[in-house]
Each structure stands twice: as structure tokens, then as C-alpha cells.
Amino acid sequence: MVPLRNWTPGSSPGMTIERERSEARRRGPLMSALNEFLQHVANGLVLGFLYALVGIGLSMVYGILRMINFAHGEILMVGAFLALPVSALGAPAWLVLLAGIAGSTLMGLVVQWAIYRPLLKSPEVTLLVASLGVSLLLQNVVLMLTSPQPKRPAPAPFLDQPFRLGEIVLRNVDIAIVVVAVAAMLATHLFLKHTRHGRALRALAQDMSAARMMGVRVPFMVMICFLIGSALAGVAGVLIGYKYGHLTPLSGFLPGLKGFVAAVIGGIGSFPGAVVGGIILGLLETFLVGYLPDALAQYRDGYVFLVLILVLLVRPSGLFGKPETVKV
């Protein structure tokens, strides 16, 4: 294959190892092992909530359509990019967030309507390939319309302030991530549990034919499903933009894949699974990077995939999923 553009892993959003280590050193040798551990826990949780947000959308779509939306990360990225001009205009952070959600939701609905809906009845490979195509398309359309240079959201000074919890140092943006993520997940949970459409969505995932007999309309439900998933992705996208300070057309790719790993760990198709899986993955990645020597820690993205492969081999149904039986 002779591709024409290079992508290098490690350009994923993430504080570089050196920065993390130098921050730890700056805090002085007095920082005990316990504090370092707690710091990692805090960082891991923040990262984990981000992964959870992405994983929920993927899990929900898989639950109903039995398809893995490769383009989920790109929807995240599009939402963030559509929020950029709003940020540039000087809007407050919450407004930027709303813009991002609107952008990603719109993108998700368009993709679902134009491409996945006609392919609903196709074999799973077809949907997989189509979503690969969408992923590639979105990445490059955004690339074509903007430039390969990273974009920066307008700085929100409040979010950059450090936030101290005892010896643990975070930034306000991290707290914002936790708060917003928890709020979003709570809202989704309430929707799923206590509204009739939420119930219908859950029923559809469990037994499509029975749900249809109840009068649940599948196309409408699929749309709702994509709506929720894409909205959550948009939340994650804007949060990522604020946390790491830069966005490229490739910014969505790794979060999308890691969100998928989170969903698999928790049991794909399961909403609580995606949450738990995300947190586990965030903690795992942070601990691996934090405790391994520098030479090995660089492979952080590789480890995530190793985890994926391990989970798929050992317990493919994840923590909360049901093992799928093959009908003979």
C-alpha cells in the first residue's frame, strides 16, 4: 500500500511523559509514594470519564445495530471543530460546549441517515467497511477545509487554574470534565430508565422483534440512539479540546478507538459497562504510563490495544455483557 499521508501514534492527545514527570519533580522529593499514587488515580479518573463518554455512544449503537461505528471518534472531532469558531468569538465555555454538542449531534444524525440507515439490513462487514469509509471521509474533509496545523480553542483562564486537593494537583478543567461527564451520564441514565423512549431503546437492544411488536419504530429509535451517542461524543470532544489545548483532524481517532476499548472492557452494548470500562481504561493507561520506565511508557497507545486484544481473548463479552451464543 502506498498511502500518501502519515499518521504517527503518540501524537495522540496526552501530556507527554516528560511533562508529567517534570511536574512530579517540581513538586519536590517530598512527594511521597502515596501522593504519587493518588495523583495517578486522579489523573486516571479524569481520563476515564472521557473514555466513558465516548464508549457509551459506541456501546449503545452496537447494542441495537450490532455495528461498530468506526467513525465515532470523527464525530467527536467534528463537534469540537464546529465549536472552535464559537470559542474564537469569545463565548463562555458552557456555550462552546453546547455548540460542540450541537455540531456533533448534527454530524451523527447526518451520517446515520445518509449511510448507515440504507445499510441497516446488510451483513456486519458491510457496515464495518462503510463506517471505516465515513471515518476516513470526515477526517479528510475537515483536513481539506481547515489545515493540518493544530487549532487552539480560545483559552479559558478559569479552566486553566490549578486545583489542589491536598497534595494532588489538577486543573479546573479536570474538575469540569468530571462534573460535566457525570452530569451527562446521569442524564442519559435517567433517560434510559424513566422515559418511554429510553425503555424502548433498552428493549430494542435486548430483543428487537419483541420490541417491534410493541409498536417501537426501529428507524426512529436508531436515530435517538445516534443522537445520544453523538451528543456525548461532542461533550467529550469539547472537553478534550480544553484539556489538551489543541485539535487536529486526527484528534478524534484515538479517543474513538480507546472509547471502543472501554466499551469492550465493560461489555459492549451495556451502558454501565461503558462507564466502568472507561474508568478502568483511564486508570490502567495512567498507571502504566506513570509507573513504567520512560522507555516503555512511550508505547502508551500500544498498551491500550494490547488490553483490547487481551480482553477480547479472555472475556470478549466484557464485564457486564452476556456471552453471545452462536446458533447452529
Partner: peptide, 14 residues
């Protein structure tokens, strides 16, 4: 889904 939820699902269009 619980028994109640199943029943409520039956009333989806109500």
C-alpha cells in the same frame, strides 16, 4: 428489564 418495565413497554404508544 423488570416486570414493570416490560409492562410499561407494552404501553409504548399510549
Amino acid at each position: 428489564m423488570t416486570v414493570q418495565e416490560n409492562l410499561l413497554l407494552g404501553a409504548y404508544n399510549v
